Simulated scan of single mutants.
Amino acid sequence: MLSWQRLRAQFVDHFVLMSGALFMSLPVYALFAATTHAPGTRVMPRLDLGTHVLDNYGAFLTASSGFSGDITAIGMLWNSFVFGAGFAALKTLVSLLAAFALLYFRVRFASVIFWLLLLTLMLPLESRFLATYSVAAELGLVNTRAGLILPLAASGLGTLFFRQFLMTVPDTLQESARMDGAGPLKFLADILLPLCLPTASALFLVLFVTGWNQYLWPVMITSEEASYTVVRGMQFFGSTSLYGVTLAVVAVLPPAALVILFQRQVVKGLFDGSH
């Protein structure tokens, strides 16, 4: 039976957590409330809801935007989703393969290669964009989805996560697979990949949010309005217009929903070494 002191402690803990959640979500709500009033109303954070929610958001999602009219809000959301999902999937795959190769193959200077990969964590992503853009332009990847995703495929952080996890896998699994005649790729696909799934899922989600919020690289590699992402669209519409604020509210929803729905898997995949 719970004591009064324990109930009071739980109440205080939940009160603090709920208060913090409400405090952090208040700015988003204030922006949402600003987009629910009639067009022409001054767009500013407010707490009172208007009556034009469906009208404003329906017109916003389907209206043509840009100087050429080649993009809509739905198109921007799709571009951001393709970029975020491709960015995360490719980074996760490359990181897993790199960690697998460094641990399970007799690569000369494997430790040196690994530490060189970790050095990339010391450099901001933006510091490599000029050289990366030069290579992408030479390969004809400007204004393509491959140009958005491929140049950012390497990830020292992802390699670190997978390497640390794979080091906890017992050597007996590899020996058993070898005795059964399984080659390296079959060992990876049938044994290691199912074990790595929680870590891969958590890393994918984190990288998806990073890709979704990426601004500078899409600005550099794309110039056509049909390739605009959500973040670039906010810069295009402006921060004080009705469509700009509406896009900012919509842009928060997909990554926030994924993080809320899969927060247990994220915590388990990144911090639970027993899976």
Results as ranks from 00 to 15, higher is better:
residue 36 T to R: 02
residue 265 Q to C: 02
residue 256 A to I: 07
residue 10 Q to L: 15
residue 44 M to S: 14
residue 215 Y to G: 08
residue 209 V to K: 15
residue 26 L to F: 15
residue 160 L to I: 01
residue 32 F to W: 12
residue 200 A to G: 10
residue 180 D to P: 05
residue 104 Y to G: 03
residue 235 Q to V: 13
residue 82 V to H: 05
residue 47 L to F: 15
residue 223 S to Q: 15
residue 134 S to Y: 04
residue 69 G to C: 03
residue 217 W to H: 09
residue 239 S to K: 10
residue 63 A to T: 15
residue 46 R to V: 09
residue 140 G to V: 05
residue 157 L to G: 01
residue 224 E to P: 03
residue 150 L to H: 09
residue 1 M to Q: 06
residue 42 R to P: 03
residue 144 T to C: 04
residue 18 M to P: 00
residue 228 Y to A: 13
residue 87 F to D: 01
residue 245 V to G: 01
residue 96 L to S: 05
residue 175 E to V: 09
residue 133 Y to W: 10
residue 105 F to Y: 13
residue 66 G to V: 00
residue 205 L to Q: 07
residue 47 L to N: 09
residue 7 L to P: 01
residue 263 Q to Y: 09
residue 75 G to Q: 00
residue 236 F to D: 12
residue 151 P to S: 07
residue 269 G to N: 04
residue 185 L to N: 03
residue 209 V to S: 14
residue 70 D to I: 01
residue 189 A to G: 08
residue 68 S to E: 14
residue 42 R to V: 10
residue 188 L to H: 02
residue 45 P to T: 11
residue 62 T to Q: 08
residue 268 K to H: 08
residue 178 R to L: 11
residue 37 H to L: 08
residue 206 V to D: 07
residue 198 P to G: 06
residue 255 P to K: 07
residue 127 S to W: 10
residue 192 L to H: 00
residue 72 T to W: 00
residue 168 T to D: 12
residue 271 F to E: 01
residue 183 G to Y: 00
residue 246 T to N: 06
residue 22 L to V: 13
residue 198 P to S: 08
residue 219 V to W: 10
residue 89 A to M: 04
residue 1 M to W: 05
residue 229 T to E: 00
residue 274 S to D: 06
residue 148 L to S: 02
residue 1 M to K: 10
residue 195 L to Q: 09
residue 38 A to H: 11
residue 199 T to S: 14
residue 223 S to N: 15
residue 273 G to I: 05
residue 211 G to K: 04
residue 29 Y to P: 03
residue 72 T to N: 04
residue 191 I to Y: 01
residue 215 Y to E: 06
residue 11 F to Q: 14
residue 48 D to M: 13
residue 28 V to E: 02
residue 38 A to W: 11
residue 255 P to A: 07
residue 208 F to K: 00
residue 225 E to W: 10
residue 227 S to K: 14
residue 234 M to S: 04
residue 25 S to K: 04
residue 206 V to N: 06
residue 268 K to P: 00
residue 72 T to A: 07
residue 157 L to C: 04
residue 88 A to Q: 05
residue 214 Q to T: 07
residue 150 L to F: 15
residue 94 V to S: 01
residue 210 T to W: 14
residue 160 L to Y: 09
residue 112 V to W: 09
residue 54 L to F: 14
residue 100 F to M: 07
residue 116 L to K: 05
residue 94 V to T: 13
residue 138 E to M: 10
residue 72 T to Q: 03
residue 147 G to K: 05
residue 186 K to D: 04
residue 201 S to A: 15
residue 41 T to H: 14
residue 214 Q to L: 10
residue 15 F to K: 02
residue 194 P to H: 09
residue 232 R to K: 11
residue 126 E to Q: 15
residue 114 F to I: 05
